[in-house]
Design a protein around this nucleic acid. Structure first.
Length: 462
RNA sequence: GGCGACGUGGCCAAGUGGCAAGGCAAGGGUCUGCAAAACCCUGAUCAUGGGUUCAAAUCCCAUCGUCGCCUCCA
């Protein structure tokens, strides 16, 4: 029984879909005005892990992730660089999609963009005005928060509380300080679309409501994103969508914790960020995935070189179980094989039990490491490759369900491999003849070239 | 000021009422020509102080500390 923590109710609930066996999941993607940082990668990884597990549980998942490709920051940045804002957005979208591939993140079923949903956006705004949930002012259109009795239900805020604490410049054209823009009138030189209220562009929140309606329907199973989006973005999405349709919008609201660098949220505005590009230049993509897997997705995750190094070591540990049988193995005893069998069952069951508990990937990993240990014990007890392979296959299946790739790296160069094999063969002969100095020289220099020997004879690239 | 999350061995971290998973690091051992790998062994009264209970890391209250949101943010 899969259970999911729901931000809306602040409780872990049994997971039940609108349509049996199918999951509709919408995740807020980035606003494309700058290079993405590893906080964005973390969020994408979290929802990739969730999606993969839903698919492991044999749900058919329709996964939608949007790109916000029109917004103040994009326009400002494009103007600074003297290029078309759409070209700028396109560039960053292209780059981000490449990063997703690098991180082995499954592509979303649909990647809608704000600029391609204008009809639906205009229809929704008009509908909200007609029903009294919104009002136009000088070419802008605002949502009337006081008209929605449920407003604040996701973030647990009351309008009165927020009013008291708010000292930000109030736009006096708005009826209530918390009213938010559905449509913004265009300033000269800005990209705009025609509308009944004059040329303009959509507010930040309405695009997601419109894209949901357009691609997933009035009601969806899961809506996700970083927990910094809970208010105002998701709160406003709920208000718009539910006032428009009169139906519950998303059943489960799932939010990931923030990635932190030196004790603070990694963010574009603070400037304490590591871009995905920089990260990938120095680390394997799986290291970040391992960091994410090894902690609760709702907790803040602190990023440091040290923690990253631990994650890389942990992946090596998983890989160690895939090593082949020891040379000359004659077969493990019945008792040893029985233990391996037992562990395989325990791991399969423990894996599902952990992941069923709000995607507890850290717990699931612990079961994988237990399997690793028993596989390695079995190997040390003389098991043959045939005896090891079912357990290794299980390990591979479960790690790949988490999106990790622990299989040997694809061969870089077939021809070079032959020479490495030859050198290792020669080293074996040198050792047989106790020519230690030469054999150590071969070993050390191979290591210097990036060849890691797994044991006496097998090897792989660094 | 308001709302919320969190504080578990040197580090990362699971567990949320019944003798505290797992990974990294460290120390000891097996194996080995040495080394590496692998295997075995070693470690926590769960921020602090009260309370509820036969029983609490786990529930309640208080205190301290860290972080997020309240303005664009994954």
């Amino acid at each position: 029984m899969l259970k999911v923590y729901n931000t809306l109710t602040r409780k872990t609930e049994e997971f039940s879909t609108l349509k049996p066996g199918q999951v509709s999941m919408y995740v807020c993607g980035p606003t494309v005005y700058a290079k993405a940082h590893i906080g964005h990668a973390m969020s994408a990884l979290v929802f990739d892990i969730i999606r993969r597990y839903l698919e492991y549980r044999e749900y058919k998942v329709t996964h939608v992730m949007n790109f916000t490709d029109v917004d103040d920051k994009i326009i400002i940045k494009a103007n600074q660089q003297g290029i078309d804002p759409f070209v700028l957005g396109e560039m960053y979208i292209h780059e981000f999609e490449g990063h997703l591939r690098d991180f082995n993140i499954l592509p979303a079923t649909i990647n809608p963009r704000a600029t391609r949903e204008m009809d639906q956006i205009l229809t929704m705004i008009q509908g909200l005005i007609d029903m009294g949930f919104a009002y136009p002012v000088d070419g802008d259109v605002y949502f009337r928060v006081t008209k929605d009795p449920q407003y604040g239900k996701l973030s647990g805020r009351k309008l009165d509380d927020m009013q008291a604490g708010s000292r930000i410049d109030v736009d006096y054209r708005k009826e209530h300080p918390m009213d938010f823009a559905l449509w913004k009138a265009a300033k000269p030189g800005e990209p705009s679309w025609p509308s009944p209220w004059g040329d303009g562009r959509p507010g930040w929140h309405i695009e997601c409501s419109a894209m949901n309606l357009n691609h997933l329907g009035e009601q969806i199973d899961i809506h996700g994103g970083g927990n910094d989006l809970v208010f105002p973005h998701h709160e406003n999405e709920i208000a718009q969508s539910e006032c428009f349709t009169g139906k519950t919008f998303a059943t489960y609201w799932i939010h990931n914790g923030m990635l932190q660098l030196s004790g603070e949220k990694m963010s574009k505005s603070i400037g304490n960020l590591v871009t995905i590009e920089e990260f990938l230049n120095h680390h394997p993509a799986d290291a970040l995935r391992m960091m994410v897997l090894n902690s609760g997705y709702r907790s803040p995750l602190s990023y440091s070189e040290d923690i990253l190094a631990q994650a890389e070591k942990a992946i090596d540990r998983l890989r160690s179980a895939l090593k082949p049988a020891l040379g000359g193995s004659t077969g493990a005893s019945e008792a040893v094989l029985k233990t391996l069998q037992t562990q395989m069952h325990a791991t399969s069951a423990g894996y599902v039990e952990s992941m069923d508990n709000d995607f507890n990937s850290a717990g699931a990993l612990s079961h994988l490491f237990e399997l690793v240990r028993v596989i390695n014990q079995t190997r040390a007890d003389n098991a043959t490759n045939e005896q090891l392979s079912p357990a290794q296959a299980l390990l591979l299946k479960l790690t790949s369900a988490l999106g990790l790739s622990i299989e040997k790296e694809t061969v870089k160069n077939q021809a070079v491999d032959g020479f490495v094999d030859l050198l290792i063969e020669i080293r074996k002969d040198l050792r047989a003849n106790k020519m230690w100095a030469l054999s150590d020289k071969v070993r050390d220099q191979l290591a210097g070239l990036g060849v890691i020997r797994k044991d006496g004879t097998s090897w792989h690239w660094e």
